[in-house]
């Protein structure tokens, strides 16, 4: 199987898979424990508006998606803080409007036929080398920020109100988390497409949470699981000649159900393993 790594696109795919999975493990853990999975889904879909805008303006679609996703994330964050009771509705609206905007903007782009499918379902086999640097840069930034603000993020994730009372800048850190989520989501779109983003961001942390007793360990285990799922899915898609993004998600899905079945079985016997 190693000979496939001689192909540059395959090497890039493997490296992209590892970088994005590590990023997903860290950010995905915070997304899961803070219950902002819905916002993340909204950001992923609305980001398509940025891709459309980028094509119309003739700039890099990755940069367009990233900029647009960050703006959408901040709007969703502010809305969810101000109008808590209607936040889900407003996020749902932004989700659809962003997507629709993307489709129409690409229609308006003269003489350019965009491969919509590659954004919906990912194109891990077509990651150019310079995007690997973006991914490495993002991963480094995310890693440093989370290490620096670890105890603040732990406090606001566990008990937001207490964090507010002891003076943690909860709003700022929450918006920062959403920005990191937006950038991470744009990278994951590269791998598995915007429709499947949520699975890769939530399944590894979901499994990791059950076997760990600290947020930091949850992030580490989720990152490793993500790498395993991504590389296994990639390898299977190569062997079986199937769509890579979907295979990655199916591998993660199988692990998810196996873990859930393991819980049901393990609940009869007592005790649960912890790291």
């Amino acid at each position: 199987m190693w000979e496939i790594l001689h192909l540059e696109f395959m090497r890039n795919a493997v490296l992209a898979g590892i970088l994005v999975s590590l990023c997903c493990g860290i950010i995905g853990s915070l997304v899961v424990v803070n219950r902002i999975v819905f916002i993340s889904g909204g950001i992923a879909h609305a980001a398509y508006g940025g891709i459309g805008l980028a094509f119309l303006l003739g700039i890099s679609p990755t940069l367009g998606a990233a900029g647009f996703a960050v703006v959408v994330a901040l709007v969703m964050g502010l809305v969810s803080m101000r109008a808590k009771y209607r936040a889900d509705t407003i996020i749902g609206v932004l989700w659809a409007v962003g997507m629709a905007l993307g489709v129409v903007l690409i229609d308006l782009t003269p003489g350019y036929n965009v491969d919509l499918m590659s954004y919906l379902f990912g194109s891990i086999l077509a990651v150019p080398s310079h995007e690997l640097w973006y991914m490495l840069g993002l991963l480094s930034a995310v890693f440093l920020l989370i290490v620096f603000f670890y105890k603040e993020y732990l406090a606001l994730s566990y008990d937001e109100e207490f964090a507010v009372i002891v003076g943690v800048p909860v709003r700022t850190l929450y918006l920062l988390l959403l920005c990191m989520t937006a950038l991470c989501v744009v990278m994951v779109i590269r791998l598995v497409g915007l429709i499947l983003v949520i699975a890769l961001m939530t399944i590894p942390p979901y499994i990791a949470e059950k076997y760990t007793r600290s947020l930091g360990r949850m992030m580490c285990v989720a990152s490793l699981l993500g790498v395993v799922f991504t590389l296994t899915g990639l390898w299977l898609s190569y062997l079986l000649d199937l769509t890579s993004g979907a295979m990655i998600i199916l591998v993660a899905g199988v692990a998810f159900f196996a873990s859930a079945a393991g819980d049901a079985f393990g609940a009869k016997r007592s005790g649960r393993g912890e790291l």
Partner: peptide, 24 residues
């Protein structure tokens, strides 16, 4: 509060020592 949250008793108690003056 979320009971299944991956956090230890010590980490929770330490949260009382957070303050605006010392983020990071």
């Amino acid at each position: 509060l979320n009971i299944s949250f991956p956090v230890s008793a010590l980490e929770i108690a330490l949260m009382g020592r957070l303050s605006l003056a010392r983020p990071g």
